[in-house]
Design a protein around this nucleic acid. Structure first.
Lengths: 137, 137
DNA sequence: ATTAGTGCAAAGTATTTGCAAGAAA
DNA sequence: TTTCTTGCAAATACTTTGCACTAAT
C-alpha cells in the first residue's frame, strides 16, 4: 500500500509538503533530527514551516513508518521503521557515529526477563555507548 | 570519603542546600524527576530555588553519584549511581512503573558486540517497554 | 578577604498548539 | 463546500544562565 492510499484510509490528505518530507526522510541513511530534515526539505520546498515537519514526523511515527529515538539527549532523532528485523545501536561518544547491530541471543534473553517479571513486551531500546575504532587512536 | 571531603578536593563548598538535596535524593527509592525532588527539598528548606536543584544534580552526575535517564520522554529522571552492579530497566507503558533488572549474559554479549565493531564500551542503556502484570488484567 | 553558591528572573532549547488562510477531497 | 493541512507566531515544557547578593572557606 502506498502512502497516499494509507493516508486516505485514515481520512488524511496527501499534500506536496508531506510528499517532500517523506521522500527526503527515506532518502537519508543516518538518524536525522528535525532541524537537519527541515533544512533538506526547505531546499525542495522553500516555504515549508517547522511545524509541518514536526507534524509529519509525528504522523509517520503513528503510522509505524518512523521511529523516534533519544540517544541520551533531549533532542529526538528519527529513523525509518523496519517492521522485520529489529536493531539496536552502538553510539560513539566522541564523534557521535551511530552503528546498528542485531543480536538474536539478546532478543531472546529479553523475552526471558519480561516473562520473569510478568511483562508483555512491546518494544525495547538497547544502546551501547563507547569510543569507536577511529576515535580510539 | 564523605561528600564534604569529596567536594573540598574539588575546591567546592558544602552548603545547607546541597546537604538537603543529597539527603532527599538518596532517601528516594524510585527514579525521581527534578520537580518531585524540588518539592521534597522545599519541605525541608523552603527558600530553595529550582536552579539549585538542577545545579546540584548536575554536580552529582559529574561526581558519579547520580545517573540521568530519559525513558522516552523529554524529562530527565535521576537515580543514585551504583558503581558495582549495573542494572537496566523494565518500564510499564500503562502505569509507568519501573523495575530494575540485571543480566550477566546480556552484559557479556554486549562486550562481544563492542569488540566486533572495535568499540571501547563506556556505558549502555537497555530498556524494555511493555505492560506489567497488573496492567495486563 | 576571597571564592563559590544561591535565588530569582530571564533566556535557551526542543516541541506543540491556536488560528486564519489555503489546498485537497 | 467541507474538511484537512499549512505557516506563522505564540505557547509550552524542561533546563540553563546572568547577575547581584549571600555564605563557606
Amino acid at each position: 500500500m502506498d502512502l497516499k492510499t494509507l493516508l486516505s484510509t485514515k481520512g488524511l490528505k496527501s499534500t506536496k509538503q508531506r510528499d517532500v518530507i517523506i521522500q527526503e526522510f527515506l532518502k537519508l541513511k543516518e538518524h536525522v533530527n528535525i532541524d537537519a530534515l527541515y533544512q533538506k526539505v526547505k531546499a525542495k520546498h522553500p516555504t515549508i514551516g517547522y511545524a509541518t515537519v514536526y507534524r509529519t514526523m509525528k504522523l509517520l511515527k503513528e503510522c509505524g513508518m518512523a521511529s523516534e529515538r533519544h540517544f541520551g539527549t533531549r533532542q529526538a532523532l528519527y529513523e525509518p521503521h523496519h517492521e522485520t528485523a529489529h536493531h539496536d545501536h552502538l553510539i560513539c561518544v566522541k564523534c557521535n557515529k551511530i552503528i546498528e547491530f542485531e543480536n538474536e541471543k539478546i532478543e531472546k534473553l529479553q523475552d526471558v526477563i519480561a516473562k520473569k517479571y510478568g511483562f508483555r513486551l512491546e518494544s525495547h531500546k538497547h544502546e551501547l555507548y563507547g569510543t569507536c575504532s577511529q576515535c580510539k587512536k
